[in-house]
Design a binder for these strands. Structure first.
Length: 189
DNA sequence: AAAACTGCGGCAG
DNA sequence: CTGCCGCAGTTTT
């Protein structure tokens, strides 16, 4: 059987250092911007340890493999300067998840840029009408934030709900605000 | 197998 | 508004 090769990138966005990990099936982890690069490295290492991943190669901007992911890196950078970016073509690896989790993540992924939905809406749409609390559990452990836009999932009463990324709820609000402002801007080519 | 744990919701005060 | 249960899937005992 073929050995699974993991690749990672860490790069600077206008909101700080971000990164991701991918294997042949697609994206596995994404790390939202932090001020210190070391914190992204730490977060990355932690995730690799938790999942017993050892063979991993840098695809940072010096690497010749960089071009494989340059589009994604550019899109992520674009997102944080307020461009309306579409990540729907981005290949994800969700193999590690239960059917319930996969279903929830797929529903969340389709929430459009600049819009929000409630945990309850997600549960209903996924076909688990009363599992809205379990949806929160899935969001908490979402390894691919932004691409799976868990920041667009808020409470039914309009409050923000929680967020596990760096800076917690403040970052969630900042991303929602960014999208709200940017979605109506005239599209620049 | 049971209990504990949530990024929730709805309702009672 | 706050507090308190019920809720369902996952994780931990």
């Amino acid at each position: 059987m073929a050995k699974n090769i993991f690749k990672y990138a860490i790069f600077l966005t206008s909101w700080g250092w971000a990164g991701f990990v991918a294997d042949q099936q697609g994206l596995r982890f994404l790390f939202l911007p932090e001020q210190r690069k070391e914190d992204v490295v730490l977060e990355l290492r932690k995730n690799l340890n938790n999942h017993n991943i050892s063979n991993i190669n840098n695809i940072g901007e010096e690497s010749r493999d960089y071009r494989d992911y340059r589009d994604l890196i550019q899109k992520i950078k674009d997102y944080f300067v307020g461009k309306k970016v579409d990540f729907s073509d981005c290949q994800l690896n969700l193999d590690k998840f239960t059917n319930f989790q996969k279903k929830i993540l797929q529903v969340v992924r389709k929430i459009p840029y600049g819009e929000t939905r409630s945990y309850k809406w997600v549960a209903q749409t996924a076909g688990y009408p009363r599992a809205y609390r379990a949806v929160g559990n899935v969001m908490k452990n979402n390894p691919i934030p932004l691409i799976i836009p868990c920041h667009r999932v808020i409470k039914n009463n309009g409050m923000l709900g929680g967020f596990s990324g760096p800076a917690g709820i403040a970052l969630k609000k900042k991303m929602i605000d960014l999208e709200f402002i940017s979605k109506s801007k005239p599209k620049v080519i």
